[in-house]
Amino acid sequence: MHRTGELFGQFQTLEQQKETATLGMWVFLVTEILFFGGLFLTYSINRHAYPTAFGIGGNMLDLNLGFGNTIVLIASSFTMAMSVWSAQTSHKKLVPLFLIATLALGSVFLGIKVVEYKQKFDHHLIPGHSFDITYCSNNPAACGLSGKALEDEKKEIEEGIQAEKANPNDPDANGIVALNAHAQLYFSLYFGMTGLHALHMIIGAGLLLWLIFEARKGRFDANYNTPVDNIGLYWHFVDIVWIFLFPLLYLINRHLA
């Protein structure tokens, strides 16, 4: 089924064969929904337990980069959908063009993600030995912080320390230690979830490369476009995961900043 558009013996029509392939892809995507669902659940429980630390962590992400990445990914879903349309209507020349556009937008997304990760590394926000939530407010020059943004962050961290001291769940809390511990929890989930999402993007980029290679031979048309369709479903699914990651990770506490 992967190589040609011929009808295989177990199916009665090509249409039935195509529907079966789509159904199989959806069954795989359902397992992916539950896979990511477990992470969203972990995030929800921990955010419920440590709202202040999660709020501070979320406000340390770069909103402009996150917003830009959301636009880029939505645009890539559109070009992916257009490549499916091109194949379905036998516009054979357009198929690889839209696929290349999708791959290019996906690469831009990953590139922006690299810039964001590097920034978090520089700001001592990688969970582990050198994690320090107060790094930027103590070294504003190194983080390019100044004026109102700096005061806001200092105020937020001071409030976070007070909130941790008042938290009955941490009888030994001395503020900053607990805040650092819980902020690390946020950043562990941030890197875990966006990292797993990025891994899906990288796999998707590999699949797109193969599709582009095949599409350039004029392989996909109205009679046979199952690979374009199914990889399209995968790509849109990855887009949906980001549609939820963006508000949950970047936006949730902006109204308090």
């Binding site: 399209g232 849109h236 939820f244 508000p247």
Partner: peptide, 18 residues
């Protein structure tokens, strides 16, 4: 509100793009 908007966006992607 954030999750409502995200759910609407997801529904659009599933219904039309997918």
């Amino acid at each position: 509100l954030a999750l409502t908007i995200a759910t609407i966006k997801m529904t659009l992607v599933i219904l039309f793009f997918m």
